[in-house]
Design a protein around this nucleic acid. Structure first.
Lengths: 204, 204
DNA sequence: TAGATTGTTAATCGATTAACAATC
DNA sequence: TAGATTGTTAATCGATTAACAATC
């Protein structure tokens, strides 16, 4: 569904007014049936015989996905990935308000990136006590994920986006999302292998 | 399943010899039944009354996921994400053999990162003609994805890992995997919103 | 009106879970 | 033998697809 949201954004930007479930399905790589089923979950945006009103859909989906919500969030770990998120306002574009960025390396503490001055991770706990923070993007090294996540959850953070690849155990009720580069890569490799053996079977 | 593979790797590294479907399910966040069902797809690794032989499982899963395959691969786009992949041998750790890295920015061409000298993207086509390349990691800016993917597929690349967030249309038969930071973030936001409204409903 | 497309209900498919005999 | 846990078959559940009357 997040994919659908992005496509609708692009269509809106391209000035498309109406799109049929058939065309949308083509763009998304799914059946028209599925598109209609999914969209009907959020409400009625279609005009029989014409398709779906892109503007209306865009307007409402922004709200559905909370892209207009400004969840207070922080970023922990300013390595390559953290820097990418900072430089390109990735959090801000997805409905989060970035309050601060932290790192523990003296080499990066104090550096300014896209308007944010990287703060010392030692100040993290104090910061959380003073500033209500809903979400955190975790981009620390794999081995530091566990304790960092614990610190965050222990101080009121209730949603963690783990981009560091490590494992974390969170208290019940915390919302989590893990993004693992290597899982995605392995999955590609698995399918490449399948497709190669299939070609062999066909006799290429 | 890629997740299962990673857990098994960690258990192997920790020196665990046997693990029951119950314990493994706990680590994976799924039922013992599911663990047994999934593992039986690959073969018989269990010992009734004891659990699964971690070493055996590890040995075979490495092969199943092609982590020992050395697919010839290249990296296109050495921004923050590309640099992360280069510096930490991410491709290499997942069964790919990294042949070269390309970028089009003069600021980065020629720089050496972790033993790789970044090459000019203008040489990409020539490189592909001379060097058989199975897979490519695409870390270019969003707007460059389309044409880069086309160039790659037109020159024999049959698996593309798209980490750039843009949209690409690939020829039939190409294996693809898209990793979108913002999709993952939006999904987190959606669930945070749900959990917040649920709390309100309960009356917190 | 004729044509196209929605919204929704019913049918299909696949994936998850439960159950249990076989095994160590 | 008694206890534990697998491998596999059957039951359940959910998600995808098909179908079609209602609507513009």
């Amino acid at each position: 569904m997040t994919r659908c949201f992005r496509i609708i954004n692009e269509l809106e930007a391209d000035g498309v007014d109406f799109i049929s479930s058939h065309e949308l399905g083509e763009l998304l790589g799914c059946t028209p049936s599925q598109v209609r089923q999914d969209l009907s979950f959020f409400g009625k945006y279609g005009l029989s015989g014409f398709g779906y009103a892109v503007g209306l859909l865009h307007h409402d989906l922004v709200h559905v996905f909370g892209a207009d919500r400004h969840f207070p969030a922080i970023l922990v770990g300013v390595g390559n990935i953290g820097r990418e998120l900072l430089e390109n306002d990735v959090l801000q574009g997805c409905g989060y308000e970035l309050l601060a960025a932290f790192d523990s390396s003296p080499a990066i503490i104090g550096r300014e990136i896209n308007g944010f001055t990287v703060r010392d991770a030692a100040e993290l706990e104090e910061f959380l006590r003073e500033t209500p923070t809903d979400a955190a993007a975790l981009c620390v090294p794999e081995e530091a994920v566990g304790e960092t996540a614990e610190l965050l959850c222990g101080n009121g953070v209730r949603a963690i986006w783990n981009v560091s690849g490590g494992e974390m155990k969170l208290p019940w009720g915390t919302v989590r999302e893990d993004l693992r580069l290597s899982d995605s890569l392995l999955s590609l490799g698995y399918r490449v292998k399948e497709s190669l053996t299939r070609r062999e079977a066909v006799g290429e």
